[in-house]
Design a binder for these strands. Structure first.
Lengths: 219, 219
DNA sequence: GAGATATTAGCACGACCGTTCGTGCATTTT
DNA sequence: AAAATGCACGAACGGTCGTGCTAATATCTC
């Protein structure tokens, strides 16, 4: 037990293992965003990456754990792409608008090749009880709480009317954003992103405390 | 070739085949609405229904044709549940509101056990080119045209402002409706349906030609 | 009745699935 | 140098997949 025994940071074996896991997960989120978590197969990942099936398997212990790790990896990517760019912005209506734009840019840029990872896998598992749905529900609550927090932030600055319903606004914004994604993908057409943007700004405008607030002028 | 030989409508053999096909498809839409079109398997359907694998297979000829037939069957069920109840209603804002309510009732009542069939399978195939995505895109265009038609209908009656953008309104309504579905399923909570209803009525109100139109009073 | 036709069953195939096992090998610890 | 640790490998397991065959069964036409 005495102190210096484990110097984990210089163990080349575990470093190599973590690197392999990262490689696997990078490919796994790509596959899952296009074809779903069910389409993840250990053999396919091994073939794609030039590894052995048992090597991939050993890194996760079970297929379900691989799927859960894939969800966690996607959560980090989402957070980096959507939330990080606006982290420094002070609360307020402007931050809320920037979030919408950040999300639309994230879906549009195909940060995941299948569009929004969570749109895909939530649809896949929202009616199938189990650890995967539980993990996705947690992620959804977190995302919803983030949006809701920005809405209440914009209300606290006085930019949104005090009697506006933050929950309804958050629901509406999320609905507009997320629905641009499948329509753009299904029809191979980017105009849904513009419609979503316009509709989101419009909703915020109709809930604004003062219709002449400069920040709202930009249509 | 001479006329009277085949009286197809009373041929008990093909009737029996059609009945089997219907039985298979009834189960197939249930499975696909919960687990997706990929989760359809001929062996599973045969086991569930007490048929032979080859019997199920023979009725469709290929797995892809089974999947396409499942989409067509779901389209009929959707049409009966959502569109038929308001078919007799004359065009106008009231019909548009009834459509929203009909859709929400359809999702809420679990006409498909996994919620909206098309929400599930569109997410599954929207980034996967092929005949299935093509069929789903066709269905989506049809659904979108229906909503758009009701919006322009409500504008033609003068209930919506002449300068309102029907495409944006249709996009917004569809987004609100469809997004109530996964949230309700994922969190096992029906309040998203109420939020969607409120938000849809609100959007229609802000696009109304006259804010005092009686039909719009009900919040 | 006989014979044509359409639906269903039985069986086998090759491919892939998740998982387990024993082993080789590089690294770290003693 | 020796022992212990942790990753990746190849082979094999029982299952399920979609899809071909062939045979049996039900229904129609004559």
């Amino acid at each position: 037990m005495a102190g210096s025994s484990t110097n984990a940071s210089t163990d080349g074996r575990v470093l190599r293992g973590e690197e392999t896991r990262r490689t696997v997960l990078r490919r796994a989120v790509e596959i899952a965003s296009v074809e779903g978590l069910d389409a993840l197969s250990i053999g396919r990942l091994a073939t794609d990456l030039g590894l052995s099936k048992s090597g991939v398997f050993a890194g996760f212990g079970s297929k379900e754990e691989l799927q859960l790790a894939t969800i966690r990896a996607a959560r980090r990517i989402f957070s980096d792409a959507v939330l990080a760019p606006i982290a420094a912005e002070p609360p307020g209506l402007r931050k809320l608008r920037l979030l919408c734009e950040s999300w639309l840019a994230y879906s549009r840029a195909r940060v995941f090749p299948g569009g929004c990872f969570f749109y895909e896998v939530n649809a896949e598992y929202d009616a199938r009880p189990g650890p995967l749905r539980d993990a996705l529900a947690d992620n959804w609550r977190e995302w919803h709480a983030t949006v809701l927090g920005l809405v209440t932030g914009a209300r606290d600055t006085g930019e949104l009317r005090a009697d506006a319903d933050p929950e309804d606004i958050a629901f509406t914004l999320i609905a507009l954003l997320e629905n641009a994604n499948p329509q753009a993908l299904l029809l191979d057409d980017d105009t849904p992103y513009e419609r979503a943007h316009r509709a989101a700004l419009r909703r915020l405008r109709t809930d604004a405390a003062d219709p002449d607030t400069p920040a709202l002028r930009a249509d």
